[in-house]
C-alpha cells in the first residue's frame, strides 16, 4: 500500500443512504436540482442501484461541465488523508474512485467528479 495523499476541502454528499465525497477543487459550482432540470443530470444513486430521488437535491458541476446529482451535501474545510483504495475496488465506478477519507469515524469514498459522471452516463447507456 502506497503512502496516503491528502485532500483539502471536500464536499461530503449523500446518495440515498450512502456516502460519497468529492474534492472541492473539482466542483465549479453547485446548483439546485430544479435549476439543472433542463439538462441531463446523472444521479449518484445509480451507482448504488437505486432510482433517482424525487426530492430536491443538489447538482455538482465540474469545470468541464459534467454534473452529478446528490441528495444532500455539506462542505468540509478540513484536510484529510486519502487512504488508497483496495486493489479489488480499483476498477469499480469506472476508475473514478480516488480513495477513502475518514471523517467523523466513517469512511467516505472520494470520487473524481468528471470520471464519476462518465461512469454514471455509461450505466445509462448500458441500460438502453
Amino acid at each position: 500500500m502506497g503512502p496516503a495523499s491528502r485532500v483539502e476541502g471536500t464536499l461530503l454528499c449523500r446518495a440515498g443512504a450512502h456516502r460519497i465525497a468529492f474534492a472541492a477543487h473539482e466542483v465549479a459550482f453547485i446548483a439546485s436540482a430544479e435549476r439543472e432540470s433542463t439538462a441531463r443530470t446523472w444521479s449518484a444513486r445509480r451507482a448504488f442501484r437505486e432510482a433517482a430521488s424525487e426530492s430536491r437535491g443538489r447538482v455538482l458541476v465540474a469545470p468541464s461541465g459534467e454534473s452529478v446529482g446528490v441528495d444532500a451535501l455539506e462542505l468540509d474545510a478540513d484536510t484529510h488523508s486519502v487512504l488508497p483504495p483496495p486493489h479489488v475496488t480499483a476498477t469499480l465506478s469506472g476508475g473514478s474512485l480516488r480513495g477513502f477519507i475518514l471523517v467523523r469515524g466513517a469512511l467516505w469514498p472520494l470520487l473524481g467528479l468528471a470520471d464519476f459522471e462518465h461512469y454514471l452516463r455509461g450505466l445509462d447507456a448500458e441500460a438502453t
Binding site: A15, H18, R19, I20, A44, A47, F48, V88, T89, L92, S93, G94, S96, L97, F100, A106, L107, W108, P109, L111, F116, Y119
Partner: peptide, 11 residues
C-alpha cells in the same frame, strides 16, 4: 460498512 459505488452485491 461503507458501500463502494459500482460494487457488485457480493462486495
Amino acid at each position: 460498512l461503507t458501500r463502494v459505488p459500482g460494487a457488485p452485491a457480493h462486495l
